[in-house]
Amino acid sequence: MGKFVFTKELKGVDAYSRHKKLLKSYESYNGSTNSKSSNTHSHNPEHDILRKHHKFVLSSDDAADTDTMTWEQRLAKKYYDQLFKEYALCELSRYKQGHIALRWRTEDEVVFGKGQFICASMQCAVTDNLTSWEVNFGYVEEGIKKNELVKVRLCPDCSDKLNYKTQKRRTKKMEKETAATVARRGKRKKTTSIDDDSSEDDDDSHRMKRQSGSSEHSNHPGNEQPSEKQDASSIWSKDWDDKDDKTKDEEFEDYFADLLQ
């Protein structure tokens, strides 16, 4: 009876509505894994398995040791092998907090050109002026801090978002250096002005001393020039010579007197 009623309800319904009806009936079934039975804890969808066992970069040792892998680990490795790891896609919605998420591209995204010919940001579709960046991506995996160099291609706006924290730190550092330089220049200028004032005072004092010394030297009675001293002394020390005042007769008489003696 129940089967007849269920078939009657699905009769004349489109495929999508029939699909939703079947899923609803399956979830309400007592033995369903989505019910609150004990079977729920032992069942994990593939999405949860991948979230638990997927690794951003699978090491060569982990990839080679397939014999000891569990079914979940083999599923995660199969998904990892299907990814394309030349370029990555990024999530930049929280770039101001410095939180950037990266993941590898799927086959459909590679065919579409996303991340290589189209900006790698999930919210951007720009195709012009793309720049390749090699990002040191730091992440925590299985409680371990890891780093990996990843290539991304971004447009100018998304490139600024990617480097937002770095540019902000660089700007703060430049501002501190500029302030320190201005402070040093101010101190140097102040010291130089003080030294200039003191040197000007010294020059003025030396100039005043020279002027006072020269005035004293010129006003002192004993500070006459040597040439003037010599002229005065030579004039007063000469003997009086009155030969020029004698007549010719007197000169002849003196001459004969000297001969007769």
Rank of each mutant, 00 (worst) to 15 (best):
K3C: 03
F6G: 02
E9K: 05
S17M: 11
S17W: 12
H19R: 10
H19F: 14
L22G: 03
K24I: 01
K24L: 06
S25I: 01
E27Q: 05
G31N: 13
S35E: 09
S37R: 15
N39D: 04
T40G: 05
E46R: 15
E46I: 09
I49A: 10
L50Y: 15
K55W: 08
F56S: 00
F56L: 05
A63Y: 11
D65G: 03
E72Q: 15
R74A: 05
L75F: 09
A76C: 11
K78A: 06
Y80S: 05
D81T: 09
K85Q: 11
E91N: 11
L92V: 09
R94M: 05
Y95K: 03
Y95R: 02
I100M: 00
A101E: 04
E107M: 13
E109R: 04
G115K: 07
F117S: 03
A120V: 08
Q123S: 10
C124T: 01
V126I: 00
T127G: 11
D128K: 11
V135P: 01
N136P: 07
N136D: 11
F137Q: 00
L149F: 06
K151T: 05
R153N: 13
D157E: 15
T166L: 02
R169L: 15
E175I: 01
K176C: 01
E177M: 07
V182E: 10
G186E: 04
G186Q: 13
K190P: 00
S198P: 02
E200L: 02
H206C: 00
H206R: 15
R207T: 05
Q211L: 07
S212L: 14
G213P: 03
S218C: 08
G222Q: 03
Q225R: 11
K229L: 10
Q230R: 08
W236G: 03
S237E: 13
D239A: 06
D244T: 12
D249W: 08
E253P: 04
E253T: 15
F256S: 07
F256C: 09
